[in-house]
């Protein structure tokens, strides 16, 4: 489970050596868009030696590889041998690229006796928004992440803080993810200095059903974590409801004037689970 995932350019030693101190639930070490073509080898080697020698790694390590149809991906995937990578982030995820990646991974996993590596699909093409339910069913997939920059560029539209242009893609990702017990992760907010815009963007995504958001600068993490965490009020409510349920030992009862039944109890359990995981209690 995540609330926040921070992108760290793979070729930036200053960011790498501090990756574990940022309050991000996961760090995405990027070998793709933030790394120039002639520095791909530098980034790959740096991330590799970092993962192999660093004592305190981030809570979860995600590696964004280059597209599977590029000649870079084979070398990128050699980093799996470090056995420190929790998830792969697949750029331009679609039915074909996911199929190809799955095949390559199976081969590697067999060869080096690695348990199956979970994949986060980066949805940044119109056709993958359409095919989203098929991607979501794939057993390798753990989460679906929206990549709005490429998507809006393909659509030739502008991104706005109101985010109406993302309503469709966000909703499809959320429905596909939730119905398959995956985590829907929202696109980053790219205007780093605009904290008010970030707050609005996070709330828009949260209210539609997004469960986490990517960050492109550490200064965005505090806001993202706060908005995607259950509130103290919600935690107190959930604790009280569950306590009452235990006391009464009943599936349905009244609490503070409201009817409590199974779906509400499930919601309360989820809140407590998250609160414990994110150390909010």
């Amino acid at each position: 489970m995540f609330r926040s995932l921070l992108f760290v350019p793979g070729n930036n030693p200053s960011m790498l050596q501090n990756a574990d101190i940022f309050m991000s639930d996961a760090i995405i070490f990027d070998l793709e868009d933030s790394v120039n073509l002639d520095e791909k080898d530098n980034a790959r080697n740096l991330v590799e030696t970092y993962l192999l020698t660093t004592k305190e790694l981030p809570k979860a390590v995600v590696l964004r590889i280059n597209p599977v149809n590029s000649d870079l991906v084979d070398d990128d995937l050699k980093l799996l041998q470090t056995r420190k990578i929790d998830y792969l982030l697949l750029p331009k995820a679609n039915k074909i690229s996911l199929f190809v990646l799955d095949k390559i991974l199976k081969k590697i996993e067999n060869k080096i006796e690695l348990k199956p590596t979970k994949v986060i699909c980066l949805i940044e093409e119109t056709k993958s928004v359409i095919d989203i339910y098929e991607l979501a069913k794939h057993e390798r997939v753990e989460a679906l992440m929206l990549g709005a920059e490429d998507l809006t560029s393909e659509l030739e539209i502008n991104r706005t803080t109101e985010g109406k242009e993302l309503l469709y893609s966000r909703s499809r990702i959320i429905y596909a993810a939730i119905s398959n017990k995956l985590i829907p992760i929202d696109t980053p907010f790219t205007d780093i200095d605009n904290q008010d815009g970030l707050i609005q963007d996070c709330k828009n995504a949260l209210n539609l059903g997004m469960k986490a958001k990517t960050a492109i600068h550490p200064s965005q993490l505090e806001t993202i974590n706060e908005i995607f965490s259950p509130s103290q009020k919600a935690i107190k409510w959930a604790e009280a409801v569950l306590k009452k349920a235990k006391e009464l030992n009943k599936g349905a009862f009244q609490f503070e004037g409201k009817m409590i039944d199974r779906p509400v109890l499930e919601k309360a359990k989820k809140i407590i689970e998250k609160a414990k995981l994110f150390e909010l209690m």
Binding site: N18, M23, E222
Partner: peptide, 11 residues
């Protein structure tokens, strides 16, 4: 400061 380390320390 915009330095993320500085901001974390300040927070």
């Amino acid at each position: 400061t915009k330095d993320p380390i500085g901001l974390k320390i300040a927070r």
